[in-house]
Design a protein around this nucleic acid. Structure first.
Lengths: 336, 336
DNA sequence: TTGAAAGCGCTAACAT
DNA sequence: ATGTTAGCGCTTTCAA
């Protein structure tokens, strides 16, 4: 068995209390401290987090719930969150919840049993009820890349509305009038779509309900949905996809219909993932300040965990349009 | 505070032992069991994993070390591993180690303190020393997408050598003779490169040392490295990149030099990530049976955790070449 | 079948 | 400054 605090105490010739004191940097006589340190070194002693957590200390573990780790944007967030958490001395238990409320609830329950110190809920966490419960049980929670206005919880996200507005304006400036949008059920998508609608309205353009497509499982039927959008009698000349994956799916759908991009159809994405740089053509998209966002959520959460939390805050960061080759003027100036 | 086993015992009018028995499905009188169950329900009791782990039970948590979660291929593996682990009742603590031995050691040490039940080491885990230590301490470990022949540990991976051989043969069949390769320090890359070399030899082709480029931080200087490969006086007509990210970097480098793909330069990748489908042009690459691999490692690990582990085994799966548009005949039949 | 009680490794009064 | 001791919530002998 691994050495315990008793072994160290015996080796150092002191009581376990003394050992515990040096473990927690409490006042200890210089001599004793030295002996204890030496004993620890000799036995290669590492305190058990379990035992110490059982007495009320932290587990220094954070539950990180996200929709799907296989999504590149999500994975990048996870990495950034992980980095910051590590810097602050925390590990992450990462759980994909697939926009599934039941899975969300189960996961939270499980991680509570494991006594994680707090939760970061990312992407499209749906169950407001679960968040409320957490809050009421005084368990630290923060939201990443989403927010639930009806709940008093800290969150960090990008201004999705502004992002949607900007992309749409970009498309409109290029001359497009028939612009469709394809998104997910997540609140972030909804906000981006609101931005889209506002931009359309501000420019006096019509918003057909058949120009708005929604999915819950992006990659699955994104292509199918995009095909429907393009299949109508008076098809759009531009499509704003609420994330890069959907944008890629839209590219595939367009290609299926032998439309060339951007000559026949302009496509814009959101997130500026790796995908958008390497796609054919490279995607016009919207960049989120992932690094900053992630650093901030982690810090917010840890503040709450450490009880230093001042007031709840909703931090909204500004996104930035990245114009690449998938969007072009309409009518096309250089039709192939 | 959350209810404890004492609260349940009191509510049910039995001793905590009885409660513990029903918790662990031991023989309990039907009546008592019912009372206990009812009490649990009423109090919404959930046992503390910490407390139970302290007495020697599992934490049902697995430490999953990987090089970099932001890498799409790695992220997809993580997702598959997560899914299988969940099915088996385990959660994952995911840690990126960036091919950094010191970080590897620190992470393992930390997770040991947290009493994870076992470890999955993925990608390019470097520190053989750390693996040995784990083994000797009887802590369950398995390797994913890599293997260390000198250590007696179970592992699941694809046949990297075969993959490298196959890609290279594909290139050779297309008429290429000057083929370069770009890879990482990871053992998997090394094996792929060995496959490349073997294929070259088998076809009587020359292997110039200046045709082999190695990096440790793929995305960082991949493009730079590829540029060097292309910058020589007698440049290659095809490049085999040991993973899709490097392949994309190579595409960028080629584009910088105004080479068109595949007319002037054929490029092949490895991993068949999302990137390879959406890139310009779509990448010829090698598919790994990720799902199977991940299910198997998790199962292997859990076998060890549960002590049912038979013998150590190294499972090697076969990869599959996916030919797309980034590779073409040489000399090119339809030079633009 | 069930209860009493010791113990898992650690923390934190309380004493000295 | 340091030791003694009572928990933390659970498992598991050992008795009854």
């Amino acid at each position: 068995m691994r050495p315990t605090i008793y072994d160290v105490a015996k080796e150092a010739g002191v009581s376990i209390a003394t050992v515990s004191y040096v473990l927690n940097n409490q006042k200890v006589g210089k001599k004793s401290k030295e002996k204890v340190l030496k004993a620890m070194e000799k036995l290669n002693y590492k305190p058990s987090v379990l035992a110490s957590a059982l007495t009320g200390k932290r587990t220094t573990t954070i539950g990180f719930l996200l929709p799907d780790l296989a999504n590149p944007f999500v994975a990048e967030m996870a990495r950034r969150v992980e980095d910051r958490a590590l810097e602050r001395g925390f590990n992450l238990v990462i759980c994909s919840t697939d926009f599934n409320e039941e899975k969300e609830a189960r996961t939270i329950s499980l991680l509570k049993q494991k006594s994680v110190d707090g939760f970061i809920l990312a992407g499209g966490f749906k169950s407001v009820e679960v968040i409320r419960e957490l809050l009421q049980e005084q368990i630290p929670v923060v939201l990443l890349a989403e927010s639930h206005p009806s709940v008093s919880v800290s969150s960090v996200k990008v201004d999705d509305f502004a992002g949607g507005y900007e992309v749409t304006s970009h498309l409109i400036c290029l001359g497009h009038k028939k612009i469709a949008v394809i998104g997910e059920g997540a609140t972030s998508s909804q906000d981006r779509i609101r931005g889209y609608k506002q931009a359309m309205r501000d420019h006096g353009l019509e918003i057909g309900e058949d120009r708005i497509a929604l999915t819950d499982l992006s990659s699955e039927n994104g292509e199918h949905l995009a095909a429907e959008l393009l299949g109508v009698s008076d098809p759009p000349t531009a499509i704003f996809a609420c994330n890069d994956i959907l944008a890629i799916a839209t590219i595939f759908a367009a290609r299926e219909k032998e439309l060339s991009i951007p000559e026949d159809l302009s496509i814009a994405g959101f997130d500026n993932t790796l995908l958008s740089k390497s796609s054919d053509p490279p995607l016009t998209t919207v960049e989120q300040p992932i690094q900053d966002m992630c650093t901030q959520v982690v810090d917010l959460l840890i503040e709450e965990i450490e009880g230093k939390s001042k007031t709840k805050q909703r931090i909204v960061m500004l996104p930035q349009l990245i114009a690449r080759k998938s969007t072009g003027t309409y009518p096309s100036t250089n039709k192939v």
